[in-house]
């Protein structure tokens, strides 16, 4: 079953071009030219892409209504308004914000990230080098079909990295997402957990391939 995207865009030229591009990328697209009926059309969709400047209801209002009706539905704002205030207003409820003119590849990448984060990605199974990861990290099979079992915190860290596949996450971001409390500079807890995690996941923990260290910034799991 293909992933269905709700797309609200009033500009026909952009709308048809983006819809065509997304269909080429094997998504089913429901394109509306205004926010009217967006909530009804969103039933059964896995993600909503909204333009901000729409006739009638603006994109922010539509987005908030969608979030109220479907709290789990990822919403991506696609807009020609790029001021910081607009971004902040959008990110109050939206999951991501892409400004026009965007490159179609960038839009597709952002959609993929959001879908993966919400667990609606087309790829239920993920091949990371020698690892086969299923169900967002619930099941990990290592080299030679060996199953890898993670502890609670290790799983939380790994699944957080998987949900942000390809993104570099800072130490603070990971620590605060997993432990739910502010990161204190100099805290080695995360480093220790990453070391144990690598011992389980990596072929050679001294030269990690799965969880990459980005020096001075943080960690990344590359797709």
């Amino acid at each position: 079953m293909s992933v269905t995207l709700l797309y609200v865009e009033d500009d026909r030229e952009i709308g048809s071009a983006v819809s065509a591009d997304l269909r080429e990328r094997e998504y089913a697209v429901r394109w509306l030219e205004s926010g009217e009926g967006a909530v009804e059309a969103a039933a059964g969709c896995q993600l909503a892409i909204l333009d901000v400047m729409l006739p009638g209801l603006d994109g922010f209002t539509v987005g908030q209504r969608l979030k109220r009706a479907f709290p789990e539905l990822p919403v991506l704002m696609l807009t020609a308004r790029a001021s910081i205030d607009d971004k902040l207003q959008g990110l109050d409820f939206a999951d991501d914000y892409v400004t026009k003119p965007f490159h179609p590849d960038e839009l597709a990448a952002r959609i993929e990230v959001l879908l993966r984060r919400s667990g609606a990605s087309a790829a239920a199974q993920l091949q990371l080098k020698h690892l086969l990861v299923s169900d967002g990290g619930q099941q990990i099979t290592g080299a030679g079909g060996r199953e890898i079992v993670l502890t609670g915190k290790q799983f939380q860290i790994f699944s957080y990295l998987l949900r942000h596949l390809g993104q570099i996450l800072t130490k603070e971001q990971i620590y605060e997402a997993v432990w739910g409390e502010p990161y204190l500079e100099g805290d080695k807890t995360l480093m220790v957990h990453i070391r144990y995690l690598r011992e389980k996941l990596e072929l050679d923990p001294a030269a990690p391939e799965i969880i990459e260290t980005v020096r001075g910034i943080g960690y990344r799991v590359r797709a």
């Binding site: 065509a20 790029a82 001021s83 026009k100």
Partner: peptide, 24 residues
């Protein structure tokens, strides 16, 4: 602010169209 937002919109919309055609 409205002027800026409108201007931004009016300038970016054609750029988006051009960019998507370039991609095609």
């Amino acid at each position: 602010r409205r002027l800026v937002a409108d201007l931004s919109h009016d300038l970016r919309t054609p750029l988006t169209v051009i960019r998507s055609h370039l991609h095609v």
